[in-house]
Amino acid sequence: MKNAEKELAEIKSMMERSTRFLSLSGLSGVLAGIYALIGATIAYFWIYFPNPPYGFRTTFIDDSVVFPKLIVLALIILSLSIGSAYLLSQKKSKRIATKLWNPAGKRFLQALFVPVLVGGIFCLALVLRGYLIVVAPSTLIFYGLALVNASQFTLGDIKYLGYGQLILGIISAFFPGYGLITWALGFGVLHVIYGSMMYYKYDR
């Protein structure tokens, strides 16, 4: 009974460890960011080169060849990011001696992927209907909402990454023509910054 404070700390730690997915590695954020930046650079050469990478209706994509190429590129980046996140999480879960697919991990993935999948399908509909101008802001906004939603099931810091994506998404929605730049900032730069901060804070 002398140890009331210790007991409370014990309770708190168990509640956290049983509900939060702690195997997410900071490095996977950095890698996802690097893939996205490489992808954005390739996209720049396809869409804008040799003009600067912005501008509304000075250069825009109505090219039936470039657009499918961009979608394939985006899917490759997505698969690479998810693939490295999976491998690195597996590695980290071994290091911190926990199973990857514990109840907390399942809830984290569900909270993340429900908005991401709905957003992905919605963006596909936007593409098919020709509303290309709102595709970049929509991906950022759905991704940001997914991160904020999932943040309660992992280390809470990830919600700041979510807020960052949301702000960029809103900016991008009001300033058409800057889609590629906001996209590169959100999926590229923010991921690298967030990933390295998480790496230094938790993984070393």
Binding site: E7, E10, I11, K12, M14, M15, R17, S18, T19, T98, K99, N102, P103
Partner: peptide
């Protein structure tokens, strides 16, 4: 008992928890 305290703490914040997940945690 600290194990029972931990079990109950986990069940306060998880609707359900299975035997193997308890064992691991």
């Amino acid at each position: 008992n600290v194990i029972r305290l931990r079990i109950m703490s986990i069940l306060m914040v998880n609707e359900q928890f299975d035997f193997n997940s308890f064992k691991e945690l």
